[in-house]
Write a protein that binds this DNA or RNA. Structure first.
Lengths: 150, 150
DNA sequence: TATTGTTATACTCTATAACTATA
DNA sequence: TATAGTTATAGAGTATAACAATA
């Protein structure tokens, strides 16, 4: 196996470096797995969140997924144009749009999740079930860590 | 702590999703840690690789770090403009440039690595030493996994 | 005042194709 | 022909500032 990957000098012991490389490998394989669906990581994420919280507005979806409001606009537009998401004015707050999946959206999400599970199995083939659980736990604790100052 | 982060529906059990979020948290804090230095993740990575393999050419640096040749050009230009890297024609292969760190480059790398170690300590404060080692091991095995088809 | 969605904008990262000069 | 570096370009992710409508 390529020795070049070993010559990372001072980067070797850095979790951040390996996180970047592992994330990159996952992202590339994910894009491959989505081939032909017209979907991307972020779009599937939005479908999953809307599926779990029907009627949610796009600002809230953004907060769940760590996407800025300004960047949500075109993403939601894409999904509406693809007829995967329905967007209606929320009667209880007329500034906001209530989002729900269309039937096509539910089908698409189901199909994507099946492809994603295969992609995850391939990427994690070298890890035992216990190791996958450990990885999920450790990553989760990094995400939810206490912010540095309050 | 924000309940919104929990409402990820089908994304919850996906390693790829949590890898994306943990990587995002690391990247944001890394950028913060580099404040005032003019450096970014990729630039520090290049300095570290050149430091470990003086005289290496930029294509090889790109292969080590997973950066395409075309994208290396402007990155190396940046580092040369900042006078952190020296680029001389390799006498043994006049197509290539041999890269080495300048004194300023060595100083910058040392300073950045100190900041990065503090950043890593902060990001991983909730993990024991054993857990950090486990995380490095698991991420490393994902990076170096066997490609799907040969 | 604060919030929702929006527009405009900019920077970075990533990717591909085509070119040159050397090997 | 293959490789090192380059140029041009395009798509995607991420960030901020400012605005209108509504709360």
């Amino acid at each position: 196996m390529s020795e070049e990957q070993e010559r990372v000098g001072a980067l070797g012991p850095l979790v951040g470096y390996h996180l970047r490389r592992a994330f990159g490998a996952f992202a590339a394989d994910f894009a491959n797995a989505m081939d032909g669906t017209g979907m991307r990581q972020v779009l599937v994420g939005i479908l999953a969140v809307v599926s779990g919280s029907p009627g949610i507005n796009q600002g809230a979806v953004g907060r769940v997924l760590g996407i800025k409001r300004a960047n949500m606009v075109s993403l939601i537009n894409e999904l509406v144009d693809m007829k995967l998401i329905e967007r209606v004015v929320d009667p209880s707050d007329r500034r906001a749009f209530a989002l729900t999946l269309t039937d096509a959206g539910r089908t698409m999400l189901t199909e994507c999740l099946a492809k994603i599970e295969a992609h995850e199995r391939a990427m994690l083939a070298g890890l035992s079930e216990a190791e996958r659980a450990t990885l999920l736990d450790l990553l989760g604790r990094i995400e939810r860590r206490e912010p540095a100052a309050g």
